[in-house]
Design a protein around this nucleic acid. Structure first.
Lengths: 221, 221
DNA sequence: GTCTATAAGGGGATAGAC
DNA sequence: GTCTATCCCCTTATAGAC
């Protein structure tokens, strides 16, 4: 494995080609699914032979792995790395809309998640891990909001449920946007987030009155 | 096309076989997708040759059409036909949970919806029509709730947004349940519906004060 | 109504030339 | 690094026997 530094020398062409193939593979797997998207179709769109493709990735599943790694890599570029706690949720509407800018990745995600429901599918474990990470991230931010006193106390089960609902809304609206690009992703997510934060706070009002003497929330973010 | 009455005479065996094939096809297409599920796999599970299958449905796409028709048919058996208005939404948690009893159909729905995002896919039009129907049904019930005075007035755009959010939650939680069957579908949907109805009502309180002289809501359901 | 046999093409993967 | 040629399996679909 070469280092991930700047490509140089004789590897430059190969690395560029690799990136190009992965980019096209994201599109094709997104459009046709992993089962339906053939390496020949991908190779044709890139403008190379299918043998070249296999030379780079060894097998179709090797290409899939590269695609998923690229997906993971881009998942961090969501514009949410600089916020935490309740602000994380407040930024979700615009972050989700920005992500919709890349239709290929959204298609890939939706198609893979659906295909992966079968435990024998090659991306089953990957998708489960990705959801676990998503839940953990959201749960951590919601817990921070609780600790900061921004919202009412929540049990671990309640946090889990809230986190799953947020994820469901993001996934469901994303799917609707795929099927009908005129779908207003921002408005939908914004409405959900605003209403949910209000609910988190409202149920906190009564609780906060009963504990106004202890645990002064000082730090934020 | 034969009538849909009770099968009798020489057709009985053929019709039973047809139903059996469709049932298995729902499972296979759900697990592997339309592209990934071959008619040979379906035929093997049924215990017949793949030629028999093509004899009944003409082509793979013919079988898919039969599957989608069966799906449409079962969609009416959701236990929601006897409620309307706000009660329709109140019953969604248990209705959704009951639907989860049939994993095959849930898988089929999720897989097809994802695959269908590409406009060239054979089920693209079907899925779009199905979503349109879903939105129309939910919108009609929410409008009834508004007319009955159960919730605050909503514009057409607001109703559309609410309906899409409900659908997103149902789809998203359904997907989570597929990936992890220990997911508590009822609790998630129940939480969302309860909170949402409360929000629909709360925003109505202020409005209702301003119009307490006009439009007395009398009829319900 | 169901089968076997077969056609015709696409799929993933490998070998070897350039 | 990329190509052509090839292998072999799986796919959909058809033809015709039983």
């Amino acid at each position: 494995m070469p280092s991930t530094g700047t490509p140089r020398g004789p590897y430059r062409t190969g690395i560029r080609r690799r990136e190009q193939i992965v980019a096209v593979a994201i599109e094709v797997f997104g459009e046709l699914g992993y089962a339906g998207g053939s390496i020949r179709t991908i190779a044709d769109r890139v403008g190379v032979s299918h043998a070249t493709l296999l030379q780079h990735f060894g097998s179709k599943e090797g290409l899939l792995t590269a695609v998923l790694e690229e997906w993971d890599r881009r998942a961090f570029e969501n514009g949410l790395s600089d916020v935490s706690g309740l602000d994380y949720f407040r930024r979700l509407p615009q972050a989700t809309t920005a992500a919709s800018g890349n239709r290929g990745l959204q298609e890939l995600f939706t198609t893979m998640a659906a295909e992966a429901s079968s435990p024998t599918h090659p991306v089953h474990a990957f998708i489960q891990r990705r959801y676990a990470n998503q839940f953990a991230t959201l749960a951590a931010h919601l817990q921070r909001a609780v600790d900061a006193g921004d919202v009412a106390p929540l049990t671990a089960d309640q946090i889990d449920l809230e986190v799953r609902l947020v994820t469901a809304v993001l996934d469901g609206i994303g799917l609707q946007w795929l099927l009908d690009p005129s779908t207003d992703v921002t408005a939908s997510v914004q409405t959900y987030i605003t209403r949910t934060i209000a609910a988190w706070r409202a149920s906190g009002r009564a609780a906060r009155i009963n504990r106004h003497t202890k645990s002064t929330p000082t730090r934020r973010g």
